[in-house]
Design a protein around this nucleic acid. Structure first.
Length: 206
DNA sequence: GAGTAGATCGGCT
DNA sequence: GCCGATCTACTCG
């Protein structure tokens, strides 16, 4: 396993990065507990022109300023009064592209993840959603804006592994109905794997 | 299996 | 004052 370098995150095509992140391994070391898993689902958020993005139309607030940092840091935000969501910031400074990590297949620290999720035996439901991933891995606002090359959150890859093109399903993003036509963009990447169970897209657009 | 209400609060208009 | 890049539990069938 080899930690991804900053150059990986600083590429300019956020869709390519979202696709390449599938099959890589996300790890956290929180409270001395090493946890992680294979990334199985991502969504790309393409900056100021993407109506689904928090940074649409150049919106820059206390919350979204993290997205404008140089690629290679985390963007964690709090929503629905109870959930955290974790994103990978990509591209260069002042280019607010990001990839939402929507799901993983746990491989490390599984017992800790079950305890954090209060799910002693819920294999299929443990980390198949962005808020579930954060809860299982212990990711909170304390991790907002920190480098992904450090020792709290990082992403690694196995050397000499490349997924075949047909191992990834491409579809529309979840929960972005407010984005108009941009809700129809195929920016969601899902690993086809017997141990991963993506949630249904509740997109209400006709 | 499908559909929906309720939780709960920070960010934004 | 409204609502969200969500999740769970509960209903109905």
């Amino acid at each position: 396993m080899k930690k991804l370098p900053l150059s990986f995150y600083r590429q300019t095509n956020v869709l390519e990065i979202a696709k390449m992140l599938i099959g890589k391994y996300l790890f956290t070391n929180v409270d001395g507990n090493l946890c992680g898993g294979m990334i199985a689902e991502t969504e790309a958020y393409a900056g100021v022109t993407d109506r689904a993005s928090h940074a649409y139309n150049g919106r820059r607030t206390e919350r979204t300023k993290t997205m404008y940092l140089r690629g290679g840091v985390s963007y964690v935000y709090f929503t629905y009064g109870m959930h955290h969501l974790f994103n990978v910031v990509t591209a260069g400074k002042d280019v607010p592209h990001a990839v939402l990590i929507r799901g993983i297949i746990p491989t490390e620290g599984i017992e800790i993840q079950k305890i954090r999720r209060k799910m002693p035996s819920g294999e299929k439901q443990l980390t198949n959603g962005p808020a579930k991933v954060c809860q299982a891995l212990g990711i909170t606002l304390k991790h907002n804006g920190i480098p992904l090359t450090g020792n709290a959150i990082w992403i690694s890859e196995e050397e000499k592994t490349r997924l075949p093109e047909d191992a990834i399903q491409l579809t529309t993003r979840v929960g972005v109905d407010y984005a108009g036509d941009d809700a129809l963009l195929p920016y969601r990447f899902i690993l086809k794997h017997p141990d991963y169970f993506p949630v249904r897209n509740r997109n209400k657009m006709t």
